[in-house]
Computed example of a mutant assay.
Amino acid sequence: MTYEDFLRRLEEEQTAPTELTAPLQALWYERKGDWKKAHELIDHLDDHIAAHVHAYLHRVEGDLGNAQYWYHRAQQPIFKGTTAEEWHNMVRLLLR
């Protein structure tokens, strides 16, 4: 799926496509306004990608201490831009 396809489908569909990975589904549901579902999708995963999405979700939530912990687990620097910029960057990266 391309980035443009992801954005188009995000506008048109309520449910994340099943072919997406759990981290991409989490980003989908967060963008749809369902932070809880997004968090549930990645909370139990133990890899660097899921940890990065987890960090982003806690940043969106406003829990910067928890976000910092997850950025460290993801071995990623704390994102300095807006959450919208981070979301777009992560979606692009994960769709490669």
Rank of each mutant, 00 (worst) to 15 (best):
V91R: 08
R31E: 14
Q25T: 01
L94K: 08
E30D: 12
A26D: 02
Y56G: 01
P17F: 02
P23A: 00
A51W: 08
F79W: 13
H54N: 05
R59Y: 02
A84T: 10
T21R: 13
Y69K: 05
H52M: 09
D63V: 01
K32P: 15
W70N: 03
H88L: 14
E11L: 12
I49G: 01
V53K: 03
V91L: 08
M90K: 13
E13K: 13
T2E: 12
H52W: 14
T83G: 03
F79D: 07
E61R: 06
D47F: 04
W28M: 03
R96A: 11
R73D: 00
H52F: 04
E13P: 10
T18Q: 11
E86A: 02
W70Q: 04
V91Y: 07
L93D: 14
W28C: 04
R31I: 01
Y29T: 05
E85F: 00
E12V: 07
G33Q: 10
A74C: 01
K37P: 00
H44C: 02
Y71V: 05
H48M: 14
K36D: 14
K80I: 05
E4P: 04
D47H: 09
D43M: 03
E85R: 09
Q76V: 01
T18Y: 09
L7C: 13
A50F: 05
H58M: 02
L95Y: 11
A22L: 14
D34P: 01
R59C: 04
W70E: 07
L24F: 10
K36L: 12
T18I: 15
Y71L: 08
L64S: 08
L94N: 11
R96N: 15
D63I: 06
